[in-house]
Nucleic acid binder design. Structure first.
Length: 458
RNA sequence: GCUCCGAUGGUGUAGUCCGGCCAAUCAUUUCGGCCUUUCGAGCCGAAGACUCGGGUUCGAAUCCCGGUCGGAGCACCA
């Protein structure tokens, strides 16, 4: 099995849709997982992507057995192109692209198709000296094929741009359909699993296999993935990063794996999602809710709880009984796992609560006391939880005045400022927490006296 | 326009090949209830689907024909 991306950017969720089923097949049925970087169009190479792709694949938990760069394999492609010419299965076409299309669309062969092998070989030898557009190498298919797209497709063309890895060493470049078929055959691919946008390409490639007398692999196609709200397109993301709309490849609004990882979505979540979607031909629309639900199932019991007070307001609670001041309050890090221990908060009359909770009525500060709020002023109401129940109090989180500054970058890239409890100092970058009543978030950065989190989901 | 493909609850799927055991699976979602000092989880309950029209058949989600809707491809990109 193989995963063969174009190195135009880091991997996004659409790539995962291709990589994961290939990886799962190898896990289940054995065989090799080959990563082949298809860098045969210098215009579409984003150099850092060579690294990024491997990083992202690793994040997904996929370790390729072998890695190939197509730009290392030009000589191989030349060798097979020549062989193809010798077999009379390909010809050098010097027609203008537009002219050719006109003929082709009417099931007409162009004059070049009748070149002798010798004529073709001669042109092939001169190919490297030609200018872009002067000639191409075409594979003979069926000029009467009912799908015009299949008719005599291009295998080789001239590219004058400099290649990031190869410089100007090569001018004759293989087209994707050619290099892919040669590699798939040479690397022993038994199954080719790819998106249905390649349906016509599979058809084209079959002609090449037949010309060469190769065994045709099993072509399997799957439908498109439609994600709500995000632009999957790498080029759009790139443009947005350049003009400053997005902060980088891991901007939370993007669908890149880096962005997803930054928010604390687990690789297992993505794998599970792709396995569930399967490889059927019809398109699938997936919602964030679905991803969040799966992710919650995975992280819910792993991560610890803390208090975070968004948009905090300070209240000074009047009439707190003397004996309740300075109380040390312990709350479990996870209610179902007592053995993880507790975090501690010290209660005094001055506390911060979320602005949204500063509404008239009785509220219970979790594990502390019940307060009555009226016109923005708070006064002691009672102490026990039973009293809170009786008063139908809302139960809210709070932090003492020793709280730490925190920012949470939300999924729309807006920032919620607030305070989190002091025990959050124990957290390391990369840790995921659940802020009670707020949602799951991943600690992204510790900046001086401030913690910066990325919001995952409820 | 041409070529090809697809269609099961809000979403993702199982079932379709080899018609009956499908008044349709599982998950997510939404809404109630119980429990719980958050949320979530858990437990209980509920909501919600075979694209439409014909045909074949004793019997159709499943087979056939047609319509509709949706998607992909139609490059000297991958």
């Amino acid at each position: 099995m193989r995963f063969a991306p174009n190195p135009s950017g880091p991997l996004h969720i659409g790539h995962a849709r291709a990589a994961i089923p290939n990886g799962e097949y190898v896990k289940k049925c054995g065989g090799k997982f080959i990563l082949r970087i298809e860098d045969t169009d210098p215009k579409r190479i984003y150099e850092p992507a060579y690294e990024l792709i491997q990083e992202d694949l690793k994040w997904l938990g996929i370790e390729p057995d072998e890695v190939y760069y197509q730009s290392d394999r030009f000589e191989i492609y030349y060798q097979y192109a020549e062989e193809l010419i010798k077999r009379g299965a390909a010809y050098m076409c010097t027609c203008d692209g537009g002219e050719f299309k006109k003929l082709k669309d009417n099931c007409q062969a162009c004059p070049c198709r009748d070149n002798t092998v010798e004529e073709n070989m001669e042109l092939w030898k001169k190919f490297p000296e030609m200018e872009a557009g002067e000639a191409v190498l075409r594979v003979k298919t069926d000029i009467n094929h009912k799908n015009p797209a299949i008719r005599d497709w291009v295998a080789m063309r001239i590219v004058e741009e400099e290649h990031p890895r190869m410089g100007t060493k090569y001018r004759v470049y293989p087209m994707m359909n050619f290099s892919v078929s040669v590699d798939d055959h040479l690397l022993g691919m038994t199954h080719v699993l790819r998106g249905k946008d390649h349906l016509a390409n599979s058809e084209k490639q079959k002609y090449l296999y037949q010309h060469m007398g190769w065994e045709i692999p099993e072509f399997i196609h799957y439908g498109r993935l439609k994600m709500e709200d995000i632009a999957l397109s790498t080029s759009k993301a790139m443009a947005g990063i350049e003009d400053g709309t997005y902060s980088g490849w891991d901007d939370p609004r993007l669908g890149t794996l880096k962005a997803i990882a930054r928010r604390g979505i687990q690789p297992e979540t993505i794998t599970q999602l792709m396995v569930e979607i399967g490889i059927k031909m019809s398109d699938s629309a997936i919602s964030w809710k679905k991803i969040y639900g799966l992710n919650r199932n995975i992280i819910e019991q792993k991560v610890n709880r803390y208090f975070f007070v968004p948009n905090p307001v300070k209240i000074d609670i009047a009439d707190v009984p003397e004996e309740d001041l300075g109380l040390t309050i312990e709350r479990p890090l996870h209610p179902d796992f007592e053995e993880r221990g507790n975090r501690t908060l010290v209660f005094n009359s001055e506390v911060y609560i979320p602005e949204a909770d500063l509404t008239d009525g009785i509220s219970r500060l979790m594990d502390a006391v019940n307060v009555e709020i009226k016109d923005g002023n708070a006064s002691f109401h009672s102490k026990s939880f039973e009293d809170a129940r009786e008063a139908k109090a809302r139960i809210i989180q709070w932090v003492p005045t020793d709280a730490i500054k925190a920012k949470v970058v939300m999924d729309d890239a807006s920032v919620t400022e607030g305070l989190c409890e002091i025990d959050c100092n124990d957290l390391k970058v990369g840790d995921i927490v659940q802020f009670e009543r707020f949602g799951f978030a991943r600690l992204d950065e510790i900046k001086d006296d401030e913690l910066i989190f990325y919001y995952a989901h409820k």
